[in-house]
Design a binder for these strands. Structure first.
Length: 259
DNA sequence: ATGGTAGACCTTCTA
């Protein structure tokens, strides 16, 4: 089973690009972030025609996440627990049914810039809530994949020009520590776990010719429970999609699980 | 030191 995560940067502005990739890659499950629309405006029919079941947690203008799956989705949960006042649509969780069910979460972790504002404290608080949810889910001792745009550059090797990110929320020591703390719970980062783990990026800014200069960062990640990591067969970044017409600034990250 | 791009939407915010 192949599970992908992709920050699509508006599903409606990107529908043609998205469908092109779905037909090319034929993934079993796709977690989308930054759909930038309310549930009613998600083009679900276009994906249902390709055989996908659709779960959406949308929001007007900003954020918004979705899960698309060829096999039925059960136990759908919208929103990250831990703060009733949080209205940002950044977390959607569901169980992909099958002989070996897999729980999947589509995560759009807050960007957190600028660092000296409440946006950064919100980011860190959100990561703390994600950690609490991960502790609950790990207790099930089942295959679990927490995938998405984490907005964290884990290590200097994950940026073409790490110096340029030192004052950015994505590369703050506190952000990186919180990401490491998630992994220390017993989650395996899929991309780093596969043989080789070549230096590669998942995001290139639209500005200043970042793609042409390969000035990218690796901020989209897949964290796996031990029961999922045991079944990990591969993890690839679909880099070429960034060179298409009307690209998202992110590209898909795909994990393959032997279920 | 600044500007460079993209999307939603109404004018500026977010990234």
């Amino acid at each position: 089973m192949r599970i992908a995560t992709w920050n699509i940067n508006s599903i409606n502005a990107r529908l043609e690009t998205a469908l092109r990739w779905f037909e090319e890659a034929a993934p079993d499950v796709v977690c989308l972030q930054e759909i930038k629309c309310i549930d009613e405006k998600f083009p679900a029919e276009a994906f249902e025609r390709l055989g996908y079941n659709v779960a959406v947690h949308g929001q007007k203008t900003y954020n918004g996440v979705a899960i698309l799956s060829k096999s039925p989705l059960e136990d759908v949960m919208r929103g990250l627990p831990g703060d009733e006042s949080d209205e940002q649509a950044r977390y959607l969780e569901a169980v992909v049914s099958g002989p070996v069910p897999v729980r999947v979460a589509s995560i759009y972790l807050p960007n957190g810039n600028p660092v000296s504002t409440e946006k950064f404290t919100y980011k860190l608080a959100w990561m703390e809530r994600l950690k609490a949810r991960a502790i609950e889910l790990l207790a099930y001792e089942e295959p679990l994949a927490l995938v998405g745009d984490y907005n964290v550059i884990p290590e200097p090797r994950d940026a073409a020009n790490p110096q340029a990110w030192t004052s950015d929320a994505l590369f703050q020591p506190a952000s990186r520590e919180a990401f490491r703390a998630l992994k220390w719970l017993g989650l395996t980062e899929a991309y780093m776990a596969v043989d080789g783990a070549p230096e590669a990026y998942t995001f290139w800014d639209y500005q200043a010719g970042a793609w042409q200069r390969n000035n990218g960062i690796r901020i989209d990640h897949a964290l796996l429970s031990p029961q999922a990591a045991d079944r990990l067969k591969g993890c690839v970044i679909d880099r070429h999609v960034r060179g298409w017409d009307k690209p998202s600034d992110h590209v898909p990250l795909i994990i393959e699980l032997d279920l």
